[in-house]
Write a protein that binds this DNA or RNA. Structure first.
Lengths: 331, 331
DNA sequence: ATGAAAGCGCTAACAA
DNA sequence: TTGTTAGCGCTTTCAT
């Protein structure tokens, strides 16, 4: 029923090895026979079976990407960066969302390894020893993207989250000389912890004793911003500014303020993080830490190709630059 | 180096057939031997090779998803719907963005077929005869999601785009008795054409002769909304309302209006389409056509599993319900 | 309940 | 330049 390399060989009066050669662009084929083979391939509608090829060659030209949530605008942007470079290098991607659930992450890694992917790009929450063990015993290279491995064992692409948070907080302190509030997600994931650290370091440097009432941790959702604002407004001395760990939450903070009659940035300043597209789609436009999201994916994928091809890599843990983009949500 | 089924068989003193049986949960294995095999699998750290399995069984438990752009918030939501159901049925997904480029779409289909996916979920722009031909000659089932096939040949999951656009336009006309402007993307893709048709039908029904100045077509981007508004403001008689084919563009329209000193909805009403998450993250909140994005993906994937398992399908072309959500961008 | 053996469709030495 | 021949690791009859 389905046409195999053998059918083509017979029909073209050559051996299957020759057919394989022309399919794989091996130069050691006489132009005449190449033409002949190509013609019968066309005629028979032959389509090489990548699974058989994968079994014989031990290469699938497929990589696995494990991502917290593909419907999250930050990660889908990152995924696009991965994909574009993967396409460039002729790789396909098996994409799976983990919801940052450890068991699911581990299981996904296992599944991808079973499927014989040539490499894995991992984006996740907390990197545990178990993760590192899996990665180290993996038969194929693994690269982390926007995911912090405290031991720096696994190759990775990140920005300096601690520093970025420090700088943002610092800039807020300079203007108000008061403690900016902190809104974000639970610090059980390393990146969140880094941001919190940066925030705390900035406070400490200005001799500000952290007021716990000014720190609100929730989920990654927009609603966390709304909720945080509700809490802050109950305080008799509400914060003059807020540093938010994620833009989407920052939008919630802005709207939470506006919906309660406050004006941003006059009554309260808001500083976000990530620079997702929405940051410029809100009024006032969001001041935020610009993270090269697409590039993190792209560079991560490029790094992975280097490992897969046994190329020399000069920098195992890549740190991409970030910057602050001051827009209208801060004075 | 890598542990194979043969190693396990030897170590457990059984045949590889038996190992295969326990791995695949075949009940015809004595509990004792099953236990023994399981133990040596654990001990040896055996991991079944899905590629070899795929070659032998002609099933890869992998499906291909072709999507216009994974970084687009609408499609990433849709993708999540696909993924959740796929996971439920133990399928992995090879995900690729096509940018609605016909050649890329066709090439992607071919690549996925080479990789022996068990089925394809296709989201795209214009479905041409060439597409249909490819789908029909495909060895595996294909389902379209949020993609209109004028011939209704290929199984699909959609909403009634024409009707939805008609209703939205109608509701705008009722309030102003004037022609609402139309902002959207080029109508070379079928879904866009359907929306345009619905808009035009509503005008016709109210005996409104379409004024071409009130129709602006650009890209899918936010900036299209900004640009459209610039154009409308040059008109001496600017529109009192706008029907926008995509929410993201609608946000651009709102901001384009606001940035020029207009108030929404007082000075101009805006009606969007899709109900992406951002719709509620803007002020005023966007009135829009609610499309069950996630469900389109989920139902599409479910439909695909039915075809892959040769189950009975009662409805080849599924039309999901839509509704209008009136928020604050309309009076 | 278990084993033997023949493929699945291809790549990659090795010969010629 | 071309062909021959082993596998790649597994599933799946068919026996036993």
């Amino acid at each position: 029923m389905t046409v195999t390399i053998y059918d083509v060989a017979r029909e073209a009066n050559v051996s299957m090895a020759t057919v394989s050669r022309v399919v794989n662009g091996n130069p050691n084929v006489k132009p005449t026979t190449r033409k002949k083979v190509l013609a019968t391939i066309e005629q028979l509608g032959y389509r090489p079976n990548a699974v058989a090829r994968g079994l014989a060659s031990k290469k699938t030209t497929t990589i696995g990407a494990i991502i917290p949530d593909i419907s999250n605008i930050f990660f889908s942007e990152l995924a696009r960066g991965i994909e574009d470079i993967a396409t460039m290098y002729k790789y396909n991607i098996i994409l799976s969302s983990s919801d940052q659930n450890k068991d699911k992450e581990l299981e996904l890694i296992n599944t991808m390894l079973e499927k014989q992917v040539d490499g894995i790009l991992f984006m996740g929450g907390n990197i545990t020893e178990e993760h590192i063990h899996q990665f180290q015993t993996s038969s194929v290279p693994v690269v982390l993207a926007s995911t912090y491995d405290p031991t720096d064992t696994i190759p990775s692409v990140n920005i300096d989250y601690e520093l970025a948070a420090y700088e943002a907080t610092k800039s807020l302190i300079e203007k108000t000389n008061k403690q900016p509030a902190l809104v974000g997600s639970e610090s059980d994931t390393s990146v969140n912890a880094l941001k919190t650290n940066g925030y705390l370091r900035a406070l400490k440097e200005s001799d500000i004793e952290p007021n716990e009432d000014y720190i609100y941790k929730g989920s990654y959702a927009y609603s966390t911003g709304i909720d945080a604002m509700e809490e802050f407004l109950k305080l008799e001395d509400r914060p003059a500014s807020v540093f938010v760990m994620y833009d989407e939450i920052a939008l919630g903070v802005i709207h939470g303020a506006q919906d309660n009659g406050l004006t941003v940035p006059e009554d309260i300043e808001v500083f976000g993080f990530d620079n997702i597209r929405l940051a410029s789609m809100v009024r006032p436009k969001l001041t935020t830490v610009v993270q090269p999201t697409y590039d993190i994916g792209a560079v991560g994928m490029r790094l992975l190709t280097k490992y897969m091809n046994d190329e020399e890599v000069e920098e195992k843990n890549v740190v991409l630059p970030h910057r602050m983009e001051f827009r209208d949500s801060t004075k």
